[in-house]
């Protein structure tokens, strides 16, 4: 077991890679999800339908086939190479945007009609209502389940190992091979993921308590769902 310590720097570096990949995907997914949520709550029904199809599609298709398509399919189709990193970021972000859009939509809808009406009646424009009235209230509802979305992205980022990207899982598998089998490195992997994910979920729970207003609780699992 002492020999395993040699691999510690490798694991630390790989953990950094996993965090970087998952954060980037979350960030892009959050922007995308926000835009889709705006479409979902739009007054024009074709926009609402498009947004709904987008979310439903990505929630009924496994991310792994999106990943395969991005990595193997896009180069063949469009004639340029896609690195494992780009493919993984792209696939993770697509999936995250579908999940985020549901979270953001729940946030926007949690702000009652009365708030809109009161603000519009006082002469504010749509954009001003969004910025001064809806956003601050919606943020409290959005923030806690976003943590759930991130945890999903973090765990899903392990799939990047399948297309050969050297993040945490791939590194664990490599270490296992150099050691000639055994599952010590795999347990180490599980432990690192657990510490990251559980730590973040504890922060999320604290956030939820912090933002709990008058019995308004949000159900993270119901919105985010999914196993990874």
């Amino acid at each position: 077991m002492t020999g395993s310590l040699v691999f510690l720097p490798l694991f630390i570096k790989a953990t950094g890679t996993t965090i970087w990949l998952s954060w980037l995907a979350l960030l892009i997914g959050a922007v995308g999800g926000f835009l889709i949520a705006l479409l979902r709550t739009s007054r024009l029904w074709p926009l609402r339908v498009i947004a709904l199809l987008y979310t439903e599609a990505f929630r009924s298709v496994p991310i792994l086939i999106v990943l395969f398509f991005a990595y193997f399919g896009v180069p063949v189709m469009l004639g340029f190479d896609v690195s494992p990193f780009v493919a993984a970021t792209f696939a993770l972000a697509l999936h995250a945007s579908a999940n985020m859009s549901e979270v953001v939509r729940a946030g926007i809808e949690s702000v009652g009609r009365g708030q809109w009406e009161a603000a519009l009646a006082s002469g504010m424009r749509m954009r001003e209502v969004m910025r001064h009235i809806v956003a601050p209230q919606a943020l409290r509802v959005i923030l806690p389940p976003s943590v759930g979305v991130y945890i999903t992205v973090l765990k899903e980022s392990s799939l990047a190992s399948i297309i050969g990207y050297f993040e945490l899982t791939r590194t664990g598998l490599l270490v296992r091979e150099t050691q000639g089998g055994g599952f010590g490195p795999l347990l180490a992997l599980a432990a690192i993921y657990f510490l990251l994910s559980y730590g973040i979920s504890l922060c999320g729970a604290a956030l939820e308590r912090h933002y709990a207003i008058g019995g308004a609780t949000t159900s993270t699992d119901a919105v985010v769902g999914g196993m990874a």
Partner: peptide, 21 residues
């Protein structure tokens, strides 16, 4: 908590590789 906070892929690998071990 352990199951919800570790990637399924890692669980699969552990089962797949640990059983023969």
């Amino acid at each position: 908590e352990v199951m919800r906070n570790t990637p399924l892929l890692v669980t699969l690998y552990i089962v797949y590789f640990a059983a023969p071990a």
